[in-house]
């Protein structure tokens, strides 16, 4: 049994028994971890407030094997995005990102880059007047982190150049008018494709110059959700609740 002291992001919290909660954590060194937090449901527990989704915490936990269930000994809040408690839309956006992380990250993996990316996103989400753009940028970064970089250079089917008629989800690429169609094809105007390219390359801190309409945000969101669901083989419940 090893004792681990690490920073972590609380991905998910569920009730396990009368006084115990089951906490899912994203850690930079140990990947996604699940641990039992005993006694935290009691009103006098000091850890109750720390173990809330979206909080960045410092935890001490015992772990028998790297992919098993740990036991949480101590937790302290490092930061918590307060805007998520007062803005439903931001909570929903953060839920979408955390659902992807919960479904698609593994235990015992090095997640330093991903951890830093999500911490930066939560800081941004807490303050930015454009939470949707920041969320779409981080979803694009998550897709790329998993090895699926959207290709905007040439048609993903025939290799031809512009003009492009839309995006093929299965090819993770733009496609020309001749190759358009099929169940994985999404018809998108050139302006939306350019905006998606900018969003995917800018990162969450490079969105100042980007101006997108509500329709474009909606189209890019649908495309990103389709890409994440197809390539990571997950179903995103939050996407059904989201209308950007």
């Amino acid at each position: 049994m090893s004792l681990i002291k690490t920073d972590a992001l609380v991905l998910k919290v569920g009730d396990y028994s009368e006084s115990t909660r089951l906490v899912t954590l994203l850690t930079p060194d140990h990947g996604r971890l699940r641990a039992l937090a005993k006694g935290v449901r009691r009103i006098r527990s000091r850890d109750r407030g720390a173990l809330e989704p979206f909080s960045r915490v410092h935890v001490t936990l015992y772990l028998k094997d790297p992919s098993g269930l740990g036991t949480l000994r101590e937790s302290a809040i490092l930061s918590t995005p307060s805007a998520l408690r007062s803005d439903y839309h931001r909570w929903l956006l953060a839920s979408l990102v955390f659902e992807v992380l919960d479904r698609a990250t593994l235990p015992a993996t090095d997640l330093h880059t991903l951890f830093d990316l999500v911490c930066a996103y939560l800081d941004e989400l807490n303050a930015t007047p454009r939470p949707v753009e920041a969320t779409l940028a981080v979803l694009a970064a998550l897709l790329e982190w998993h090895g699926f970089r959207p290709d905007f250079t040439c048609c993903g089917v025939c290799g031809g150049g512009e003009p492009f008629a839309g995006f093929r989800v299965d090819k993770c690429s733009v496609v020309c008018g001749r190759c358009a169609g099929g169940s994985h094809f999404l018809s998108l105007p050139p302006g939306t494709l350019k905006a998606f390219e900018h969003l995917a390359s800018a990162g969450i801190r490079g969105l100042e110059s980007l101006r997108l309409s509500g329709l474009q945000l909606d189209q890019i969101c649908s495309l990103l959700v389709a890409l994440l669901q197809y390539h990571l083989e997950i179903t995103l419940t939050t996407a059904r609740m989201l209308h950007v």
């Binding site: 007062s86 803005d87 439903y88 909570w91």
Partner: peptide, 14 residues
């Protein structure tokens, strides 16, 4: 008063 409980409250208020 959890994050999800607060979000539910905001949703209902809306």
């Amino acid at each position: 008063p959890s994050v999800d409980g607060e979000a539910t409250a905001l949703y209902l208020a809306k």
